[in-house]
């Protein structure tokens, strides 16, 4: 089941890249498409942050992940490199669980 999802998603992502190179440009140069597509990663990444920080299944929860996200926000505001952002968030969660 996981394999099927991985392969379908990979094929879809590759197909989108190939479509951009292959389709007549004017198909995708519509002003509404140009405006809408860049909003998708903004909305989806924000929704991913919210759901994976504050929920467990269908329950809203507040746990060490919120603190991990808070540390990640500080790291991003300090313009820390990607790996530092990840490691500081993970370390925050790990340390709080030890307490």
């Amino acid at each position: 089941m996981i394999w099927a999802g991985l392969l379908v998603a990979s094929a879809a992502c590759y197909g989108l890249k190939l479509a951009g190179l292959s389709l007549p440009p004017r198909w995708l140069q519509d002003a509404r498409i140009q405006r809408t597509v860049p909003l998708l990663p903004v909305a989806l990444l924000a929704a991913l942050i919210a759901t994976q920080t504050f929920s467990s299944g269908q329950h809203l929860v507040l746990d060490v992940r919120a603190a991990a996200l808070g540390v990640a926000v500080i790291a991003v505001l300090l313009r820390a490199p990607f790996l530092v952002v990840i490691v500081s968030a993970a370390a925050t969660a790990a340390l709080l669980r030890l307490l």
Binding site: L45, T53, A68, A72
Partner: peptide, 11 residues
Amino acid sequence: AAPPAAYLALL
């Protein structure tokens, strides 16, 4: 607990 930090860095 790290994925939200990854999304944040990308966002």
